[in-house]
Structure formats: structure tokens, C-alpha cells
């Protein structure tokens, strides 16, 4: 059934792939991303999204050593014409440099952070979608943080 839906989606639209740039959002200050339509019909579409954001380029030793965030999200999108709504869920992998006073040296910490989101999407023309989103991010599975983001997506390919 899923493959039938997938084929249906593929045949009816060229919105399968898009790239995006997000201000704030899951990359903290910003990120670039890629979205792919997994399956969908005229009333509901499901997307997979990933990307990368750089939180810092320079570490405490004043050396180039970027801290990065890689969000991986699944999105469900519904709505009509230009106006769509989205709910999403997934996780953000973060890797950052800090000092370990026990080791007496720089240490890289890797974490997973649960994220859920809701967004409004406005389709402008054939290829552009603008999006405003709010997120709840369970930072390191410890602290729940509300967050938000603005993004522009450009569709490409078939």
C-alpha cells in the first residue's frame, strides 16, 4: 500500500526534493537542510528531513574546531492550496568541544536531543515554500526547551 501511495505521490508531483535554509531552528542559530517526500497524497504528505548547523567554529583554545548540530526529522504536512500545516518529530545529534577538567584536555561530547515541532508553511509560486516553526527540544533528554525557526525551502528535481 505504501509503495502504491509512493508511486501515486511521485506521479502527481515534482515536490519530492527540496533544500532549505533555516534561521534559528534545530541548528540553534541556523542550518541548511534537505527534505525528501517519502509518501503522500493530495491531503497529506510525509517528508524526511536532515541538515546541518554549526553552532561555533572556534573552541575554547581559540582553534578551529566546529560544534555541529544534525537534525533528523519526519514531517507530516496537510492543508490546501498555498497554506499548509506541519507537525514533526525526530532528534538532533550534537557534537561539541569542551574542556574536561578530569582529563585536563579538550573533549568532544556527542549527544542526542529529542525534538518535536509544529509549523505553518506558505507556498509561494511553484518552487518556494516559506515556513515558520515552533519546537520543543528535550536537550540531552534532560531539559525541555521551547525554540523556533524561520525557513525558506526550494524545491527541485522530479
Amino acid at each position: 500500500m505504501i509503495s502504491t501511495l509512493f508511486l501515486k505521490a511521485q506521479s502527481r508531483t515534482n515536490l519530492s526534493n527540496s533544500v532549505s535554509i533555516e534561521v534559528l531552528g534545530l541548528g540553534r542559530y541556523g542550518s541548511v537542510g534537505y527534505q525528501r517526500l517519502i509518501v503522500g497524497d493530495s491531503s497529506m504528505q510525509y517528508y524526511f528531513r536532515t541538515g546541518i548547523g554549526v553552532m561555533r567554529f572556534i573552541n575554547f583554545e581559540n582553534k578551529f574546531n566546529p560544534d555541529i548540530a544534525i537534525p533528523t526529522m519526519f514531517e507530516a504536512v496537510f492543508g490546501e492550496k498555498k497554506h499548509h500545516y506541519e507537525i514533526s518529530g525526530g532528534q538532533v545529534y550534537t557534537s561539541y568541544s569542551r574542556c574536561s577538567t578530569e582529563l585536563g584536555a579538550e573533549k568532544r561530547d556527542n549527544e542526542f536531543n529529542l525534538a518535536i515541532g509544529a509549523a505553518y508553511r506558505y507556498g509561494a509560486g511553484e518552487n518556494w515554500v516559506y515556513r515558520i516553526a515552533v519546537y520543543d527540544i528535550l536537550d540531552d533528554f534532560e531539559v525541555l526547551r521551547p525554540w523556533g525557526g524561520l525557513s525558506a525551502r526550494h524545491r527541485f528535481g522530479k
Binding site: 560544534d67 548540530a69 550534537t94 577538567t101 585536563g104 527540544i137
Partner: peptide, 20 residues
């Protein structure tokens, strides 16, 4: 410290600071 998203920096004692 918990004020910033994705940051996990620790409260430190002075001895650890100057040791490092």
C-alpha cells in the same frame, strides 16, 4: 549551566581552572 540550547558546560572550582 542550562540556559543555552545544546550547551553542556560545567560549573567549575578554582583549583580545576588553574590546574588546567
Amino acid at each position: 549551566y542550562s540556559k543555552r540550547l545544546y550547551s553542556e558546560y560545567e560549573v567549575i572550582k578554582l583549583n580545576d581552572l588553574f590546574t588546567n
